[in-house]
Amino acid sequence: MGENEFQVLITQLKKGNEAGLAQVYRETSQYCIRTLIKKTSIPTEDAEDLLMDAILIFRENVLSGKLSTLTSLKSYLFGICWNLWRERNRAQEKWATAHSEIERQLFWIQTMEHSTVKEEAESTQEARVRMVTKALADMSERCRKLLTYVYVEGRSQQEIAELMEFASANVVKVTRHRCYKQWMSNIEQTQARNDGQ
């Protein structure tokens, strides 16, 4: 991907068009997946998954403005893949060394058999995820977009002002405060309804 194509991709992504990410995958998969397998001996599907996650980080870096020029797409993505693999590997090593064999067996038994406690914790967590995402989905499109641009995509106030036709970055901030409070209020109301049931 040349510099011009990359700039086109940036524009597309900033407009919310994610179709170009497939092209990023196509251009980098052969190099990244093969190199990952060669260097780390991880299974192919893990390497594919790492590359997908790396592409998500690439997208976020583009949207937040951290990445605006690129010399080599595949080297950049491989760098992210490599860091992701190291992070995951460190987490696995920590688990492996922190548990004695007996603890591991206990872990297995707990994992394989139905654990009420775990199920309850998972269902509470799932309910929270549903509540938070629904509270956002229930908001006006303008508020939802604004909060997503700020908290998910990390876009600058100035860029948001231009994109959403706000008079200034300061107006973006005031509107963000209002939308954020609305979001929190939606969550609280759903929580109160759930607690009352």
Partner: peptide
């Protein structure tokens, strides 16, 4: 909450 909406977007 922010992490939840980020994860959902990802």
């Amino acid at each position: 909450e922010i992490e939840i909406i980020r994860a959902a977007d990802r």
